[in-house]
Design a protein around this nucleic acid. Structure first.
Lengths: 143, 143
DNA sequence: GATAAGCCTACTATACCACAAGGAAAATAG
DNA sequence: CTATTTTCCTTGTGGTATAGTAGGCTTATC
């Protein structure tokens, strides 16, 4: 499986926050219940999103989490790359990209480079806004 | 990492076989040495490729492995799907696709479906032939 | 009889995944 | 000031998958 729960849950709670009371703070408990995700596990995901300013956290009563930017300013690609570490199909294209000794004559490297570009190009088209139900971009599913 | 060594090694040895003496049988030892892959580990990969008739094995002296089809008839997508089990980005799109209870209102499912189609569309363009070196003289065994 | 695939079990080592536990720190209400 | 709320932070844990390693036995071919 290419996308782990960390990336998937992150997208889901971001869309949830964008759809429910965008300026208010929503508690972790409320998010976890609505999305049917373990509260403690979700905490570790949300922590990362706060760290990179995609989310804002507020402590104390009336606190919780809200989006750090407008939904259209949050790229699906960025969220997934943050949460997954990398989306690169092979290690030599990853962030720690240690150059492979066979790279000069590797028959498959161009294939992986193209795949990487294809995936990033696809995911780069979407924002949290484009995943929302209210959006008119063809993702309007009837419940 | 999205593509494991099983898929990557499989592609590499298929291209290797396509480039070196396409009609002859090549021993596992020769393949392993040339591709710098552990012989025992490669055995498990090759076994699977024989099982699905992408490779042909011949026992005894003069035996080894050769392609079971022409290089242009072997799809990169097929090889990777065989070796990786699935390329689906999320479990609910995989082969054992257990339908998620949230599918009806899932905001991200269309995203994953599109990603799956994008990846399969990209990889479906390539064959083992298209990964072969064809610009320099020595290795170009065009059939 | 040498060679080499085919098949089998078992074992290690590492890493990541999906979560759980408990407490510290900060904000707010009374 | 105290109690409550809620995030923030560190640590641990069981399970699964990856990437091998090791060895032996069978079968087929030259």
């Amino acid at each position: 499986m290419m996308i782990s729960t960390r990336g998937r849950y992150a997208l889901r709670i971001l869309v949830d926050l964008a759809e429910h009371r965008p300026e208010a703070y929503v508690t972790l408990r409320e998010l976890a219940e609505r999305q049917e995700i373990s509260e403690k596990y979700l905490e570790s995901i949300v922590k990362e999103l706060v760290r990179v300013c995609i989310l804002e956290g507020l402590r104390g009563k009336g606190g919780g989490y809200r989006l750090g930017r407008e939904p259209e300013q949050i790229s699906v690609l960025e969220v997934l790359e943050r949460m997954e570490g990398t989306l690169a199909p092979v290690a030599c294209l990853g962030p720690e990209g240690k150059p492979c000794s066979r790279a000069a004559f590797c028959r498959t490297l161009p294939l992986w480079k193209g795949l990487d570009e294809t995936v990033r190009g696809y995911l780069g088209q979407f924002s949290i806004r484009s995943l929302m139900r209210s959006d008119e971009g063809g993702y309007d599913y009837v419940i």
